[in-house]
Computed example of a mutant assay.
Amino acid sequence: MKKILKGKFDRLRQLSNASGTFSALAIDQRGSLESMVQSSMPEGVYTGEYAKEFKRLVSKELTPYISAILLDKKLGISAISAKSDTCGLILSYEKAGSEVFSTPGKIPEILLNESCKRMVDFGADALKVLVYYNPDDDFDVLDKKHAFLERLGNEARAAEIPIFVEPLVYDNTVTDQGTKEFAKLKAKKVKATVAEFSKSKYQIDVLKIELPFNYKYVESFVEKENSTVLYTKEEVKQDLIQIGELASCPIIYLSAGVPTDVFRKELNLVNNSGAKYSGVLCGRATWQDGVSIYATEGAAALTEWLQTTGKQNVQELNKLLDHGATPWYDIYGGLDNIEVVEQSY
């Protein structure tokens, strides 16, 4: 019997759809989104208000069709106010990834002016924390990240708010993650990371993970005769199944910035493998094509795009989830095998 605190249980239900899966949209990008919008505008035009409006419009138009949205409080306050009441709210709880990635050891940091309790009081249904993770790193680096997650888990338990942890794998020698060399390492690193973060000491509620392959080198994606095939479809299938078996908490997949049609093909691969997963937290694959439309044609044009293409992007993903994702509570044996408990101090 799996015991889950009532606050966490109620919020996980709020964040998932009627089928018990997570159809979630990520638009918590901060500096990277500002750069995307600014680069599409004439020089000297951009202000931070444009990124805020972009998020607000995405939230207003797409949240009626998803179970949860991931936002930030730096640029996303108006987007939070604009979301549908039926859509759960996940808030970023860490410094932007760009601020951490270039630092020694890539040690994660929590926003200094926030706490789990403050986020709960603000209305969050869950918190998301990104952690750059290399399972082959030096002990000192790993120990700091493990301790960070243990503290985070205890704080979230006290506030009874679910934690979505997003581990992004890297290597200290092969630093270009788009290369064949890194693609050869990726599946092993993702599996080792899932195995580590599934340990009960971290109290992670949902793992938001990368797909364990680079689609450019998968047998079914390679189009040119001189392209390199690093993974057969059978190898990908086995990696996905093993990840599902290693996880002791629900896992959801991120889109990692790939084009919309590519992410659909990737999810089809997951579905056809029969591997266990409980949904997606999809970002740029859903809305990135709207950035240039907004920057060059304005809010009305973006609204029209969101109401048509953006909505279709979401609905196509929802169809894929209907065919392959399993309820988050199935990893615990189903709702009948969960005991909802009150907090004890």
Rank of each mutant, 00 (worst) to 15 (best):
N313G: 04
Y277L: 09
T326N: 05
L149D: 06
V291N: 11
F221P: 00
Y215L: 03
S23D: 09
S278D: 11
V218W: 07
L127Y: 03
I243D: 02
T47C: 08
A26G: 10
E155G: 04
E61N: 10
I251A: 08
P327K: 03
K319L: 13
L254M: 14
C87R: 10
A195D: 14
E316I: 02
N271P: 13
S278W: 00
S292M: 02
G324R: 01
M119E: 13
V206D: 06
L254A: 09
S35T: 13
S227K: 05
K199Y: 03
V100I: 15
I252S: 03
L111F: 11
D239K: 01
T47M: 07
E304F: 01
A192M: 13
E94T: 08
N17M: 04
A187D: 04
K199T: 09
V218C: 15
S98M: 12
I243T: 05
G153D: 08
V190P: 02
P167F: 10
F221C: 02
F22P: 03
L267M: 15
K8P: 12
D125Q: 04
V194Q: 07
D28N: 12
K184P: 00
V222E: 03
N214I: 09
Y329P: 04
D140F: 12
L281G: 04
I69K: 06
K311F: 03
Q29D: 11
D171I: 00
A299R: 13
R151I: 09
K311D: 05
K3D: 13
F263N: 00
Q312R: 15
I338T: 07
T286G: 01
S227G: 14
N271A: 09
V37I: 15
Y294T: 06
M41I: 09
E166V: 06
Y93N: 11
V165Q: 02
T260I: 00
E43H: 06
L246R: 12
G105V: 10
I69R: 09
K180H: 01
L70I: 11
S98A: 15
S248Y: 04
E266S: 07
H146E: 13
L267I: 12
T308E: 12
D85M: 09
G31S: 09
K145E: 07
L152P: 06
S19N: 14
N17G: 07
G333A: 05
G298K: 10
T286A: 09
V37F: 00
A24K: 05
K6D: 12
Q29P: 00
T228D: 15
A256G: 04
L254T: 00
K8D: 09
K106H: 13
K186W: 00
N134F: 00
E109S: 14
L15H: 06
G324F: 03
P167C: 02
E210I: 05
E210C: 12
G290T: 10
Y231S: 02
T286F: 08
P250W: 05
Y294A: 04
K265G: 00
V291A: 11
A195K: 15
N17L: 01
Q29T: 06
S198H: 07
V100G: 11
R56T: 15
L25K: 05
L335T: 12
V270D: 01
C116F: 14
L5C: 02
T193E: 05
V169N: 04
I209C: 11
K208F: 08
L281S: 10
N134L: 01
